[in-house]
């Protein structure tokens, strides 16, 4: 069966078993190895990608179900010498990345979260991360960086509003 979907803005066709996990299509067919295959059970979040803008586990997503959808991976969020997504920049600035295994998934989950929850509190940030396991257990620094990022966005917005008056 042929499945067609948008992948990081480009049209993408996959011709094989529609029950193939999206994760395997990304890594083995498209050589997009940012999403990691760690638990393959929906538990660790290392394989998180966006399907139609929402973070989901690509290890449990049969590629047949993304037919007609738009898939964004960490490579599509910002690649090569492009500017980083502001949350990636915040992680880099605060030096939160340790081994990095969890980070593509962490960024995909949290980039959608900060987009949808600009006023989030620390407990809400923690809940949003409950499906992203960091084996290096750098959680508190990640939460700090997300909170700082939201704070920076807020003051950015306020500055803009005052400028408009």
């Amino acid at each position: 069966m042929t499945v067609t979907f948008q992948l990081n803005g480009d049209r993408c066709r996959f011709h094989d078993d529609p029950m193939t996990p999206l994760l395997d299509v990304l890594r083995q067919e498209k050589f997009l190895t940012g999403a990691k295959a760690v638990c393959r059970e929906g538990f660790c979040g290392a394989c998180t990608v966006h399907v139609d803008g929402e973070p989901v586990m690509s290890c449990l997503k049969p590629v047949g179900l993304v037919s007609g959808c738009s898939v964004t991976t960490i490579e599509g969020l910002s690649s090569g010498d492009q500017t980083l997504h502001p949350l990636q920049a915040a992680f880099e600035a605060a030096d939160v990345v340790q081994c990095g295994m969890c980070f593509p998934g962490m960024v995909m989950s949290l980039s959608a979260f900060v987009r949808d929850n600009p006023e989030a509190t620390r407990p809400e940030i923690k809940t949003a991360m409950s499906g992203n396991i960091c084996r290096c257990t750098g959680y508190e620094r990640i939460i700090d960086a997300v909170a700082d990022h939201l704070e920076a966005q807020k003051s950015g917005r306020q500055a803009k509003e005052t400028a408009h008056v």
Partner: peptide
């Protein structure tokens, strides 16, 4: 139940 990404699906 589960985690946010699973609950979305």
């Amino acid at each position: 139940a589960a985690n946010p990404a699973i609950r979305r699906v």
